[in-house]
Design a protein around this nucleic acid. Structure first.
Lengths: 197, 197
DNA sequence: CGGTTCCTTGAGGATGATCAACGAGGGTGG
DNA sequence: CCACCCTCGTTGATCATCCTCAAGGAACCG
């Protein structure tokens, strides 16, 4: 989902700056705003008692996040934190609901973006269940690749091993071991500790 | 999502009967129809090479399924199979899209149902990642309980151990062992091999 | 009954998690 | 330029747990 900035501003939206690692909303918090990233990136994730984390989704410039929660009477299923210094435009729930009411083409766009998210999440679940760490990692690399520009040749994976671990629900050491194994099998390339896929 | 049957029929929808375990659509198939269950139940799931299965969702009377795929240019992320003899009403994709265009209240209802699905799937993912088998099983029992009527006392769980295993991505034996353990801890009850929660 | 499906148990093995330690790179301030 | 620190990557040893395989028992249904 992406709404034109001028439109958002004209409806009274305000931009807000977040430092790196700042919380935008918490798990189980109530949804009050529509959030759209102007610049930066945001991570939605859960963490459990052992400090293990699971990244639900990553968002970059132009993406909105947490918008599904605006439609239902449930609290946020996960936490949102900025990955780096980030500027986000916020619009109140009420105005957002009015906006999509007012502009059918936006409502349609919104619907499609929800449908896409369902699709993505279905694939994630089916990937996770597949158990094999390598499979999970490949699944992650593939989803992120779509967000990347390059098509030919290999792309630098802009995530630390820890981040990949958080995304796949694995442990750092496991990620490392699987990656080096995949390197030997030429499924990825590791040059100077940097991962290429 | 649920659309009035008369309305569906007036738009040329047709009811179709499926025997138990019949496939309604396949993973990676193209979405051509809106499906709504008149009577029976349907399971959406993935299976991997080892024959291991993961149930994405279960649907009963009045539920629609696979509708998110009608909005996007992607194939079905999972397979749909009837759990028992089931009657389903089908409407072509084109007519479905027209219907929700025509009736704003339906479009809104559809949007909300998509948002709910996202929420549910987010919770599933965060649950799965939690690793602990017991946690996964409890998560499953909770989601299914919502679909059940009883509130007071314990409810008979209408699923076989195998079905629970498929839903949680665990193995039958693991499910059995965890359940007996939970029985001792009084978290569930097993009477005559039947599971109550 | 006889067959089918589901439940149950045990033993053994595979694998990811955990713990502990170290190495490498990059940035900062003296 | 060097010393220091901090984050990230890497490795090995050990542990816990779920999976696998195999076998048998219980419930249900014609």
């Amino acid at each position: 989902m992406q709404i034109d900035l001028d439109l958002l501003f004209s409806w009274g939206a305000i931009a807000e700056k977040y430092k790196k690692n700042e919380t935008i909303f918490d798990e189980n918090g109530t949804a009050h705003f529509y959030y759209q990233i102007i610049d930066g990136s945001v991570r939605l994730y859960n963490s459990n008692d052992d400090g293990k984390e699971f990244t639900q989704d990553l968002f970059i410039n132009g993406d909105s996040f947490g918008d599904a929660s605006l439609l239902i009477d449930k609290t946020y299923p996960s936490k949102a934190v900025s990955l780096k210094d980030t500027t986000i435009i916020k619009l109140t729930k009420e105005k957002f609901l009015k906006i999509i009411e007012e502009y059918p083409y936006l409502q349609k766009k919104f619907m499609v973006s929800l449908a896409q998210k369902i699709h993505a999440k279905s694939e994630t679940s089916s990937g996770i269940i597949n158990q094999k760490p390598e499979f999970r990692i490949v699944a992650f690399l593939n989803t992120f690749k779509r967000k990347s520009v390059t098509c030919s040749d290999r792309v630098l994976v802009p995530y630390t091993r820890q981040e990949i671990a958080n995304f796949t629900g694995l442990r750092v050491e496991t990620v490392i071991r699987v990656c080096t194994r995949m390197n030997h099998l030429n499924k990825v390339e590791i040059i100077n500790h940097k991962l290429y896929y």
